[in-house]
C-alpha cells in the first residue's frame, strides 16, 4: 500500500484579475505505508495545497493522486468516501477546526455514527477509547471547544481524525499554532500514535526542526515544485540544493548562542510571484550558483546518491 502522487499540478484562476496562480507545478512523490514524509517550504510553496489535494479537498488540474491504487477523483462518490475514511487531515488551527456548537463527544462520534464503524451501543466506549488514546481525560467529553486549551483542542482534532480509522494522516502544521511549551507533548503523541496504530504520516511544516524530528524522508518545496528529496539524515546533514542549504542556515537555532555571524544573510530577495513563474529554474533569481542557462532550462529531479534527489543543474 502506498500513496502515489504523480505529476500533480494545481492552478487557480482569479476571475477578478484574469490571472492564474500556479500553486503546484508538477509534483511527483511516493509515500510507502508506515513511512513519514516531511514536506518543508515557505509560504506559497504549495505544501498546503498538496495536503488538501491528497485528502480530496482540491482536485488537481493535472496529474493523479492514488492511495492503495485507487484514484482520488471527485466524480466517483463512493471511491471518494472510502478514500476519505482512509486518509484524514489535521489542520493547523485547532480554534477553527472544531465546530463551536458541537460537544467534544459528538465531534468525535459523528464519523463513527455516519459510517457505522462500530455498533451503536459501543460508540460511547469508542469515544472514551479515542480520548484516552490522545491523552485526554474522558470527562472532557461534554465540553465545548471554547472550554479547552489549544493543545487539548488539537488532541480532539487528532482523535476525530482517528475516529475514521485512517491509514494515512496528513498533518498540516499541527503544532505551529500551539504554545511552545505544549508543542513537545503533541509531537510525542503523534510519534506514539504512529507506532501504536501503524500510521503513515505526511507532516507539513515551515519549521525544519520539527520536520527533522519526525520525518523518515523529507521533501523540500519551492514555488510548487519539489527541489530536493531524501532521507532526513541526507537532507539535514548533506543538503545539496542551494535553497535547502539556505533554509537550514536560516533555521533559528538555540544551540549556537551569542554569535552575531549566525545572522549573516543567507538568501537575498523574496519568493517570486506564483502568477508569473520565472522561466527555467524557479529559484534562479535568488540563487548564488545560478548560471545563464538556469533561467532557460528547468532542472528536473535527478538521483545523486541512493534515494537522494535534487532538481539543480549546478550541483
Amino acid at each position: 500500500m502506498s500513496l502515489n502522487i504523480v505529476n500533480v499540478e494545481k492552478r487557480y484562476l482569479n476571475r477578478a484579475s484574469g490571472t492564474t496562480i500556479n500553486a503546484l507545478n508538477g509534483v511527483s512523490i511516493k509515500v510507502e505505508v508506515g513511512q513519514t514524509l516531511g514536506i518543508v517550504g515557505e509560504s506559497g510553496c504549495g505544501k498546503s495545497t498538496l495536503a488538501r489535494a491528497v485528502v480530496g479537498l482540491e482536485v488537481p488540474s493535472a496529474g493523479s493522486i492514488t492511495w492503495d491504487g485507487k484514484v482520488i477523483d471527485n466524480k466517483a462518490k463512493d471511491r471518494l468516501k472510502s478514500h476519505h475514511s482512509q486518509v484524514q487531515l489535521v489542520f493547523q488551527d485547532p480554534y477553527s477546526s472544531l465546530n463551536p456548537r458541537q460537544q467534544i463527544e459528538n465531534s468525535i462520534a459523528e464519523a463513527i455514527e455516519v459510517h457505522g464503524l462500530v455498533a451503536k451501543d459501543k460508540i460511547t466506549d469508542r469515544v472514551t477509547e479515542l480520548l484516552v488514546m490522545v491523552g485526554l481525560d474522558p470527562d472532557l467529553r461534554n465540553r465545548y471547544p471554547h472550554q479547552l486549551s489549544g493543545g487539548q483542542r488539537q488532541r480532539v482534532c487528532i482523535a476525530r481524525a482517528l475516529s475514521a480509522e485512517p491509514k494515512l494522516l496528513v498533518l498540516d502544521e499541527p503544532v505551529s499554532a500551539l504554545d511552545v511549551s505544549v508543542r513537545a507533548e503533541v509531537m510525542n503523541l503523534l510519534i506514539d500514535l504512529r507506532k501504536n496504530l501503524g500510521l503513515t504520516y505526511i507532516f507539513i511544516s515551515h519549521d525544519l526542526a520539527m520536520i527533522r524530528y519526525i520525518s523518515d524522508v523529507i521533501a523540500v518545496m519551492y514555488l510548487g515544485k519539489i527541489v530536493e528529496f531524501g532521507t532526513w539524515e541526507e537532507i539535514i546533514e548533506n543538503p545539496v540544493h542551494p535553497y535547502t542549504k539556505a533554509l537550514i542556515a536560516a533555521m533559528p537555532d538555540h544551540s549556537i548562542i551569542g554569535d552575531p555571524t549566525m545572522l549573516a544573510r543567507t538568501l537575498e530577495g523574496e519568493v517570486p510571484d506564483p502568477v508569473n513563474l520565472p522561466s527555467g529554474c524557479s529559484f534562479h533569481s535568488r540563487c548564488a550558483l545560478a548560471v545563464p542557462s538556469c533561467s532557460i532550462i528547468a532542472p528536473t529531479l535527478r538521483e545523486i546518491s541512493n534515494g537522494h534527489l535534487v532538481a539543480c543543474s549546478e550541483v
Binding site: D179, A184, A209, R212, Y213, E233, M251, S255
Partner: peptide
C-alpha cells in the same frame, strides 16, 4: 522549555522532554 525544543544535532532523535499541563 529549552529541552522541549527538538535538537538540530541529536542523531538518535530521542523523545522530546515535555512540560505537562498548560500555562
Amino acid at each position: 522549555l529549552l529541552s522541549s525544543l527538538p535538537s538540530r544535532t541529536d542523531k538518535s532523535r530521542k523523545r522530546l522532554t515535555s512540560i505537562p499541563g498548560v500555562p
